[in-house]
């Protein structure tokens, strides 16, 4: 199967009352790419993620995953009262997939403000994410007739913990792990859903330069190992410039630049948007 375009956004707009968080955003991500979405704080990056993963229904626009329409809304749709813009309209149908349905299609994500299952161990956190692959039903699972499947899931979870270097901390409570390890655990958990597209929301937040460098290697490594396409939001410019194939820059919800890392570095609009914020 050769899917050229992994993810495509067409004119996605998200409004909260009068605030336009994402404004007419269009982009596309090809298979096997690492694409970064950058922009100052409050530019609408996470909101864009939430529109892709079905947490929010956008007020307007469409999202395609592997050329399949997964999210679609338009001013005549359910968001009629909320929509005040004059963007391109789609007379198409309203498509709203819930986050779990989108995950099942092969899009996994991590969260900016780490959302691990707090009362569970690292191992259980990863194991939970294998739930969507189950072939067992309630009865076979309760009566342990799914022994083999359970075994497979446990092995997968252990492999993934090993891949992110957390096998030693397997039985520790997720919350008791240090910050950087929690971030990696979140990635392992997302990988357990066996995604083709992985969305990382500020994976390097709160990490020191050494950790960030290790993370960069790690991200490139998992792309190769699991055949992933990666879309990430990040503030650490070193990381972004280091690993991204392409970069999108947004500010106040609008796309202000796009291109190769070198192009973005010298782009005056980007520098203006980051004025005073500079590279960290």
């Amino acid at each position: 199967m050769s899917v050229e375009t992994m993810l495509e956004l067409k004119h996605v707009t998200m409004q909260f009352g009068g605030v336009v968080a994402v404004d007419d955003l269009s982009m596309h991500i090809k298979k096997d790419e690492i694409v970064a979405l950058i922009g100052p704080n409050g530019a609408g990056k996470t909101t864009a993620f939430n529109c892709i993963t079905g947490v929010y229904a956008p007020t307007n626009g469409q999202v395609f995953y592997q050329d399949k329409l997964i999210v679609s809304n338009h001013p005549q749709g359910r968001m009629k009262q909320l929509y005040v813009g004059s963007h391109k309209q789609f007379p198409s149908e309203v498509v709203e997939n819930t986050p779990d349905q989108i995950t099942k299609l092969g899009v996994a994500r991590t969260f900016q403000n780490i959302r691990l299952f707090k009362t569970q161990t690292a191992f259980e956190n990863v194991l939970i994410a294998t739930h969507l692959h189950r072939k067992s039903n309630l009865f076979s699972a309760t009566l342990r007739l799914n022994y083999k499947e359970e075994q497979q899931h446990r092995e997968l979870a252990e492999q993934l913990l090993d891949a992110v270097g957390l096998l030693k901390e397997k039985d520790e409570l997720a919350v008791s792990l240090p910050y950087g390890k929690q971030r990696r655990l979140e990635i392992a958990r997302a990988l357990a859903t066996k995604p083709q597209l992985l969305l990382l929301d500020e994976p390097a937040a709160g990490m020191n330069p050494q950790e960030t460098e290790a993370l960069a290697k790690f991200i490139v490594g998992i792309r190769k190992r699991f055949g992933l396409t990666i879309f990430l939001i990040e503030h650490h410019m070193d990381l972004v410039m280091d690993i991204s194939d392409r970069i999108y820059v947004i500010d106040f919800g609008k796309q202000i630049a796009t291109g190769l890392p070198e192009q973005i570095q010298d782009n005056p609009a980007v520098i203006a948007a980051y004025l005073g914020v500079d590279e960290e």
Partner: peptide, 15 residues
């Protein structure tokens, strides 16, 4: 238990 701990994360994990 995942739902109890964090609904948003649980849903993002395909539950």
């Amino acid at each position: 238990k995942a739902i109890r701990d964090d609904e948003v994360a649980a849903e993002a994990m395909g539950i």
